[in-house]
Design a protein around this nucleic acid. Structure first.
Lengths: 242, 242
DNA sequence: AGCTCTTTGTGCATACGTTCACAAGCGTCG
DNA sequence: CGACGCTTGTGAACGTATGCACAAAGAGCT
């Protein structure tokens, strides 16, 4: 995975929720919320799994890690399950988020509505460009990067979103960490180095595209030469051999 | 994982590159490109791994799936490795990308420079809002959603990027797939249903935040009650029991 | 040539994740 | 009240991923 698990030594302590499950819970939560809005009272694992795009067995195992909610022969109470998943994810408390870098992407993030819905509040916007400082986006004034430390403390930020150019990302990250921020969402195309105790998740458009490209190529190759014969393995010379 | 592997039955056919490896190759590629720009001739697995934020053993195993490039006692030739990874990912050919939905996020994506660098060309922008149609973003005219099919064919799009509101996503996706697009990058907060042969990758801000929230909460809990004692497991009544 | 030093590539052990298949549990209907 | 049908929760089997540790293999020096 990508998040360096703090103290990952023993084989999954009993009460622990596996990382893969954690990554899926938000999906379930979203589907369940939609169901709740449609006044659906209960769902079966089968139905919920279909809506979430996973197998029903996987879904049940995932939910079983939270506890034994759900009634045999009936299914899961939608509203109750929403509550339990929220609790498991720690969404019963609210988190204040700061966005560093208010360029195109930062703007988009700040305006993203679904942001605030689930317990996250954008509490601060920071940018290095003096021309942008003072601008107001979503009822929030953009502050200058120099004030980063002050802003973080002032608003008790617990999650930092880095939407700066790649060059600035590591520096910003270091400063966030120095202020005590232990969760970072990184949109800059860089690998961030952080202490063990800090969680970093990265969202990288170009990586996603490259992964798609790989599969695209594989599919295309399959059309021309289905049988196991691999692509002719190129002689060691093409393009580079300084 | 999240991409339903087409024909994932046999235990990893010999020449195949594992999904986890594919997901890391773009990272190596980026680091290597930076090294190449700094006129570095060769890297050791140790150095490269450090820069990419992974263990050196993992890196070597990843690379070993592409073939046996690299020289014992020396390391890897940077330029050559760039080429090999590019080839493995299918970046030797170029992909034409269409962005559907040119709101805040779509704008950000269209302007994202690192987009074009690695063999991807934004070939079309599409939006449903007549007010936006005709606008020009990066030397590209925004076309109307009604023309989606025409645009896709016209520009031979192979990858569709969905940046629409959640409600429109599935419909747009269906239409893309109907046009023969087999790779989709979805930014809308919805689970897309697609045929087996289509790869979908999703990028979801709110999911990432929720995952961070989970870890944040776990860290906070650890401070107050380090010993294994779990959080008091709440009685089954809070908030819902219709 | 032979020796040494470095670094790759990989066999092996372990942990993690997924899937199947089924017993246990709950509601319902006769 | 007992039998039946449906759905959960989970044990067990399999596949995938990770990390260690080391043999094999160049490069360079004497």
């Amino acid at each position: 995975m990508q998040v360096p698990r703090a103290a990952a030594s023993r084989p999954l302590g009993k009460g622990e929720i596996p990382e893969a499950t954690v990554a899926r819970l938000p999906v379930y939560l979203r589907v369940l919320s939609a169901l709740a809005d449609s006044d659906v009272g209960t769902v079966s694992s089968e139905a919920l799994a279909a809506a979430a795009g996973v197998g029903s067995a996987k879904l049940r195992k995932d939910l079983s890690h939270l506890g034994s909610y759900g009634t045999r022969g009936v299914g899961y109470d939608v509203e109750y399950l929403v509550y339990q998943i929220s609790r498991a994810l720690g969404l019963t408390q609210h988190y204040r988020v700061a966005i560093i870098g208010v360029g195109n992407l930062g703007h988009a993030l700040a305006n993203y509505a679904g942001f605030a819905t689930r317990g996250f509040r954008i509490a601060a916007l920071v940018d290095a460009d003096p021309a942008r400082v003072g601008e107001e986006i979503v009822g929030l004034e953009i502050r200058h990067l120099d004030e980063l430390e002050v802003v973080i403390k002032e608003h008790e930020i617990s999650i930092g979103v880095i939407a700066t150019p790649a060059g600035a990302a590591q520096d910003v990250c270091d400063r966030l960490v120095a202020c005590g921020v232990t969760s970072v969402l990184n949109f800059a195309p860089t690998v961030l180095a952080v202490p063990e105790a800090v969680d970093v998740r990265k969202v990288d458009l170009s990586i996603e595209l490259q992964i798609l490209a790989f599969h695209e190529q594989r599919k295309a190759a399959g059309i021309h030469a289905e049988p196991g014969a691999a692509v002719p393995d190129d002689v060691r010379s093409a393009g580079a051999a300084s």
